[in-house]
Design a protein around this nucleic acid. Sequence first.
DNA 1: GGAGTGACGCGGC
DNA 2: AGCCGCGCCACTC
Length: 111
Amino acid sequence: MAKNNTDFFQKVYEVVRQIPYGKVSTYGAIAKAIGAAKSARTVGYAMNASHQHEDVPAHRVVNRNGVLTGKHHFPGTLVMQQMLEAEGIEVKNDQIINFEKHLWIPEVQRD
DNA sequence: GGAGTGACGCGGC
DNA sequence: AGCCGCGCCACTC
C-alpha cells in the first residue's frame, strides 16, 4: 500500500517543487493534490522538514487566506515576504495582494 | 501508550 | 462579516 508517512512528506515536497515562479499555493490545495485533503495541517508540518531540502520553495506556500502564516519559521521575520516580493508578488501586512491571481493549484498526484 | 501540539480548513454562532 | 470551536493527520514527550 505504500502508505508510509515518509511517502507523505515526499509527495508534499514534489508538489511544492512544482510551484512555478511568481506563483503561490495553499496547504489545503497541496493536501488535496497528494490525496490527503484533510491533512492540510500535516502538510505544514512537512514544511518544517522542508528546510533540509533546497528544492522546496516553502515561501510560496501560504494558508488558504493568502497570509504568510509560516513566515515566523524562516530565519528572518521578513525573509518569506522578501522572497515573494522578489517574484513579483505584492505582500502587505503578511498578506498577499491579489492572492487569487497569484494562486496556483497543483495537479493531483497519483501513484 | 495516552495526551498535547501545530506553517490548516471549515462550519456554526 | 467577524470570532469561536472542532476535526484531521503526523509527530513528540
